[in-house]
Nucleic acid binder design. Structure first.
Lengths: 147, 147
DNA sequence: CGTGATTGCATAGCATACTATGCATGTGGA
DNA sequence: TCCACATGCATAGTATGCTATGCAATCACG
């Protein structure tokens, strides 16, 4: 008995769709040359003024190392971050925000809050925390998957 | 008063993360050359044997027209779909699955069910339908956004 | 102290997604 | 009929993400 496949009942499809809409909503509001959605985790990880290795940033953002390398290349090209050799490890570079990068980080944080609020406006206040909790559990389950 | 930004409380970040994990879980299980995550909506839209225009497929998959054009180019290259001129409209092509495409569609459907089940295994059965409903409402809210 | 394994980064190649733009066909009104 | 507008598709360029792979620096152990 094959059940018909319905998009509205596919967790993966709906999640992917929602994610693309979040990115579009974000990028419509980030036209100032501060980079798109990929730069956001970098901003937030470095916003307190610290300097992190590429590896640490990749782990923080939950992306693979070459993805972060690409993102940092673009951000460096656009004057948003700078790389400096790690004095304690000749393989490693320490990444930090430039003054321009810090400006953009602040703006991006504001925009991200607005977009999150927009998405969550579809939920009743009492639903929001359980929703985020469920999403977090799904992330954990898929992170553990080695199938 | 700046609240600290926490990934675990950002709906956009969590949704994007979960979406990437769904895609990775899917693609780890789809190594047979039948295409990746982008081909799935095409399979499901055409699985009943019909033929649709590129425009209709893009709307069904909720992607922009050039994205669908790219996906169909790859699928045509890999022998999964064929394009035929629409006899009623000289601008339009009708897309249909090849026999190979129909095989892959069946396999992909099975895999998609498994991955959805894996993700949803993190939720109690009673949570699943409300979760999908909430996700659907978020999609609707973001679709309506013109900000 | 070497040497082999591990670690951090870079590069290549690709898929999936977007916006902007152009071309060809189709449609409807003057 | 003819022209303006609308519509379907193609192309260019870019961003974000992945896997596979290679290199150089570091580390751990005999």
């Amino acid at each position: 008995m094959e059940l018909p496949y319905r998009r509205e009942q596919s967790a993966g499809y709906l999640t992917n769709w929602a994610a693309r809409l979040f990115v579009r909503a974000l990028e419509r509001r980030l036209t100032g040359g501060g980079g798109g959605s990929g730069t956001m985790p970098v901003y937030f990880a470095l916003n307190e003024g610290g300097a992190l290795s590429q590896k640490a940033l990749a782990r923080w953002a939950a992306v693979e190392q070459p993805t972060m390398a690409n993102t940092l290349d673009r951000m460096e090209r656009d004057g948003l971050v700078s790389r400096a050799p790690d004095p304690d490890d000749g393989r490693s570079m320490l990444i930090s925000l430039t003054p321009l990068g810090r400006e953009r980080a602040t703006e991006s944080l504001t925009v991200a809050r607005k977009v999150n609020a927009l998405g969550l406006s579809a939920l009743k206040p009492a639903e929001r925390e359980p929703f985020l909790d469920m999403l977090g559990r799904i992330v954990a389950a898929l992170e553990a998957d080695k199938g």
